[in-house]
């Protein structure tokens, strides 16, 4: 009796401890985000409590800030082109790694996947060296090449995983029916790896949009959005950054929902 009571008490206590723990971890993750959002609507230029009243003015100043809007456009330009490049290079690379044998394959695999595990600063300075040596001047285009190189690994790993699960019998059937290799590739394989491609494209777009370490070394006069925000926040903190941040979080939420539903579509296959 006492033993049983002890056991339930113990379990209750244990569960209580766990629930508190989970709640505090979630608080650790989300309270700061709430703080960021709340201060983007706070009518005071200092980020201190108590709150002083509601305002839209930080959002208005964001949309009136020409430098910021230019940086935003630059980021869209860089992230879009970098994503296209990662797909154009990454999908054939994943395909070659999965289905082809060629000398130096192991070295090729290691090289392509290396930026996934290496700190961004290594990719950044190594490409800075190259561009300086070749006499290129730094610009948004060098940033695009840098991002594409760093994020190639994201596309390759995702598409490679999908290709490995793809049964070879489709391709055999296509070949038996007289399809040429490139027809098989475009009409049979590509449609089957579409969700992996879209998913990894979304991921590399997001990562490129947010990238700093590589951009830091490869950009010229033009700034991307994170670089612009960073240079602003090194001068001082303003609620305007909170407003930009809140907008970025809203955009991220849309992307999360998109990618989760894409993953689900993939599971139902």
């Amino acid at each position: 009796m006492i033993q049983a009571l002890n056991n339930t008490l113990f379990r209750r206590l244990g569960d209580g401890v766990f629930v508190t723990m989970i709640a505090s971890i979630l608080a650790f993750l989300y309270l700061p985000v709430i703080v960021l959002i709340v201060f983007s609507f706070n009518d005071s230029s200092s980020l201190t409590l108590p709150l002083s009243g509601f305002t839209w003015k930080w959002y208005q100043s964001v949309f009136a800030n020409e430098d910021l809007l230019r940086a935003l456009r630059n980021s869209f330009y860089v992230a879009s082109l970098a994503t296209v490049l990662t797909l154009v290079i990454g999908v054939p690379a994943a395909f070659a790694l999965d289905r082809l044998n060629f000398p130096g394959k192991t070295l090729f695999r290691r090289l392509v996947l290396l930026p996934l595990v290496l700190p961004g600063i290594i990719t950044g300075i190594s490409m800075l060296n190259l561009f300086k040596l070749m006499g290129f001047s730094l610009s948004l285009e060098t940033v695009i090449i840098g991002h594409a190189t760093a994020l190639l690994s994201v596309v390759v790993t995702q598409v490679f995983a999908r290709l490995q699960r793809l049964s070879r019998s489709y391709e055999e059937a296509a070949a038996d029916l007289g399809a040429r290799p490139w027809e098989t590739f475009f009409l049979v394989i590509l449609p089957n790896i579409r969700s992996a491609m879209i998913g990894s494209a979304l991921l590399s777009f997001t990562l490129s949009f947010d990238e700093i370490p590589v951009t830091f070394f490869l950009t010229g006069r033009d700034n991307t959005l994170p670089m612009y925000i960073w240079s602003t926040m090194r001068r001082g903190l303003t609620p305007e950054i909170n407003a930009v941040g809140t907008l970025i979080i809203a955009a991220s939420l849309v992307l999360i929902v998109l990618s989760v539903s894409l993953l689900k579509a993939d599971d139902e296959r």
Binding site: P32, V33, V35, L36, T206, D210, I212, P226, I229, W230, M233, L237, I241, G245, I248, I249, S252, L255, I256, S259
Partner: peptide
């Protein structure tokens, strides 16, 4: 998915 920079800024 939320900007790395923002998470440090917060």
């Amino acid at each position: 998915w939320v900007s790395y920079l923002l998470r440090a800024y917060i």
